[in-house]
């Protein structure tokens, strides 16, 4: 174990970890938006929206995130989409995790007891009011924990942008492995930072889950 080397390079890893955090936050936010839209589309009254929602979820979940990322970043210019590597990373991975989040959200919504919607409608609420004021608040409680699983996966998933040369944690580790020939030290350094980010996020989600859980 080369401790001197670790002490020498760790500031670069800290800087890279911030990029990983940025990527995580942005992809997760975009994923939540895409997921909510797709879940709404899949539960819609209109067949065309249901079809679009289902196609989005099926295609994005059926294709590796890496391929989708490459398609967007390298293939995008051919169809008039010019993105920087960072932008492509955020959009590609955000749209990708959105498909998984859509399923999580839909699952939570449909697992709210049907009687709740019926009772709300009987009391005179419109379909939309019933959804917003009765179903959604209950579903939100149910989806925090499974969304936490998606979020955990996405933080690790940001590593994929190393393949399009965004300088984040995995790319930095890879570069230092190449230049120092010390893979274990570099893995330990990057791994410790990933574990720190993931553990902290996990604690945050568990806190949120406890906070809104019904007794």
């Amino acid at each position: 174990m080369d401790v001197d080397l670790i002490l020498k390079v760790y500031p670069h890893f800290i800087k890279a970890a911030w990029v990983t955090v940025e990527l995580s936050v942005l992809t997760i936010l975009l994923g939540l938006v895409c997921g909510a839209l797709a879940a709404a589309a899949r539960l819609s009254r209109f067949a065309i929206l249901r079809f679009i929602g289902a196609a989005y979820v099926s295609v994005l979940r059926g294709v590796p995130a890496l391929i989708f990322l490459f398609l967007l970043y390298f293939g995008g210019p051919q169809i008039g989409i010019q993105l920087s590597a960072f932008e492509a990373g955020v959009i590609g991975l955000g749209v990708n995790i959105g498909a998984y989040m859509a399923e999580t959200m839909r699952g939570a919504i449909i697992s709210v007891d049907k009687g709740q919607a019926e009772a709300a409608r009987t009391l005179g609420l419109s379909r939309f009011q019933a959804f917003r004021k009765v179903i959604l608040p209950q579903a939100m409680r149910l989806m925090i924990r499974p969304l936490g699983v998606n979020i955990n996966a996405q933080i690790k998933g940001t590593a994929l942008v190393a393949a399009i040369s965004v300088v984040e944690l995995t790319y930095t580790a890879q570069r230092y492995i190449g230049s120092t020939y010390k893979p274990f030290e570099m893995f330990l350094l990057a791994g410790a930072l990933y574990l720190f980010i993931i553990t902290l996020t996990g604690k945050g989600i568990a806190y949120l889950d406890r906070k809104v859980r019904l007794p």
Binding site: T158, A159, F184, F187, A190, G191, Y194
Partner: peptide
């Protein structure tokens, strides 16, 4: 360790680490 780090990083470790 394996559940908290990205697969891509693990692949680099195994491929380059074992060579080391």
């Amino acid at each position: 360790l394996f559940m908290g780090t990205p697969l891509l990083l693990q692949l680099f470790l195994i491929y380059f680490g074992l060579v080391q």
